[in-house]
Amino acid sequence: MKHVWASGAAAVLLLSVGTYIGFFHAPVEQYMGITQKIMYVHVPTAWTALLAFTAAFVASVGWLWKRAWTWDYLLESTIEVGIVLGCLLSVQGALWAKPTWGVYWDWDPRLTSVAVMVLTYAGIAALRSFVDDPVKRATWSSVASALGYVNVIFVYLCVKWLRTLHQPQSSPSTVDPAMVLPLRINAFGMIFLAIFLVALRYRMARARRARELEA
């Protein structure tokens, strides 16, 4: 249990250091000005959300293959963390798009793909809450999770294609090396935070299943 708290502490430390450097030491980006500073929290959240959904996919394949309960606990925890991070990412995306493009949502392919993944996994979380038998719940949600994850490639391609018909690519291209440091620190910070959250939710899932399955 110690390493879980350690991961939480590391997250707090890294995120504060990364944000501090990002705000006060990293240069202001010449084109986008101050709004570019959102990147230091926005991009790490994006990477971590995708990581969480990828872990959910791995967990569902693990359950379908091995039928060991640890995979189901991991699936349950990564879904919840993934959904929260995904929603947070969408809010950040809107707060970044408004000053940059004047609209709250500019259908950026990556952001839209994550938003669709949040919808998909929210549906899967609903499915899990409506199935009583633990084995069926694990199997069906794993099947839905595998289908949902594989689908994200199509979502990304379709939205990207649809947008290139209307708008030029909107993501910042060049990243000044001095900006990479805070970005990377915050990225590790977010990942440690996600590990902390998933670990706690994993233990909750295990406790719930133990209560559910006790003879």
Partner: peptide, 8 residues
Amino acid sequence: RRFAGRWA
């Protein structure tokens, strides 16, 4: 054979 917590 069990259904959730109960062994039928």
